[in-house]
Design a protein around this nucleic acid. Structure first.
Length: 259
DNA sequence: ATGTCCTACACCGTAGGA
């Protein structure tokens, strides 16, 4: 089973590109972030035509997450526990009913810039809520994949120029620490476990020729519970997507599981 | 650290977010 995470940066603005990538990759489960539309405006018919069931947690203009699955979807959770005061659509979770069920979340973690400031504080508080949910999920002893745009550069070698990121929310020690908490509690970071090379990016800014210079960062991650990590065969980054017409600034990261 | 792109809203430019 192939499970992917992809920040599409508006599903409607680049629908032809999205459909082409989905056709090329033949994924079983796809987690989208930044769909940037309300649920009613999600291009449901076009994607259902490719054989996907779809759940969305959208909002007007900003954020928005979705899960596509070729298998039936059950037990849908919208938002994180403790999100009641939060109007930003950044989390959706569901049980994917393949041969072996796997619980999958699509996560759009706050960017947190400028650092320091209220947006960074919001990011850290959001990470605490995510980590609490992640811990709760471990107690189910299921295969779980927490897939998303974590807006976290885990190590200096996961960017082109660490000096450019020292004052940025994506590389702060607090951000890295809370991301690492997921690993301390028992989640395996898929790319680190199955590849772990440096300078393998999932995001290149639209500005300043970042793509041409390979000035990227690795911020999209697949966090796997022990039951999922045991079945993780390989992780790949579909870099070609960044060179397509009307690309997202992120590319898909794909985990292949023996599930 | 900004050579871009997306969205909305009030209008065919500008602001805000990333």
């Amino acid at each position: 089973m192939k499970i992917a995470s992809w920040n599409v940066n508006s599903v409607n603005a680049r629908l032809p590109t999205v459909l082409e990538v989905l056709k090329n990759l033949e994924l079983d489960v796809v987690c989208f972030q930044e769909i940037k539309c309300i649920d009613d405006n999600f291009p449901r018919l076009e994607i259902e035509d490719m054989g996907y069931n779809i759940i969305t947690h959208g909002q007007k203009s900003y954020n928005g997450v979705a899960i596509l699955s070729k298998h039936p979807i059950e037990d849908v959770q919208i938002g994180l526990p403790g999100d009641d005061e939060d109007d930003q659509a950044r989390y959706i979770e569901a049980l994917i009913m393949g041969e072996t069920p796997v619980r999958v979340a699509s996560i759009y973690l706050p960017n947190g810039n400028p650092f320091p400031g209220p947006k960074f504080d919001y990011k850290l508080a959001w990470m605490d809520r995510l980590n609490a949910r992640a811990k709760e999920l471990l107690s189910y002893e299921e295969a779980v994949v927490l897939a998303g745009d974590y807006n976290c550069i885990p190590r200096d070698e996961d960017c082109y120029d660490p000096a450019a990121w020292v004052d940025d929310a994506l590389a702060q020690p607090e951000t890295r620490g809370k991301f690492r908490e997921l690993q301390w509690m028992g989640y395996t970071e898929g790319f680190a476990a199955r590849d772990n090379r440096g300078h393998q990016y999932t995001f290149w800014d639209y500005q300043a020729g970042a793509w041409q210079k390979d000035n990227g960062i690795r911020i999209d991650h697949l966090l796997c519970s022990p039951q999922a990590a045991d079945k993780l065969k390989s992780v790949s980054i579909y870099k070609d997507a960044r060179g397509m017409t009307k690309p997202s600034d992120h590319v898909p990261i794909i985990g292949e599981f023996e599930l």
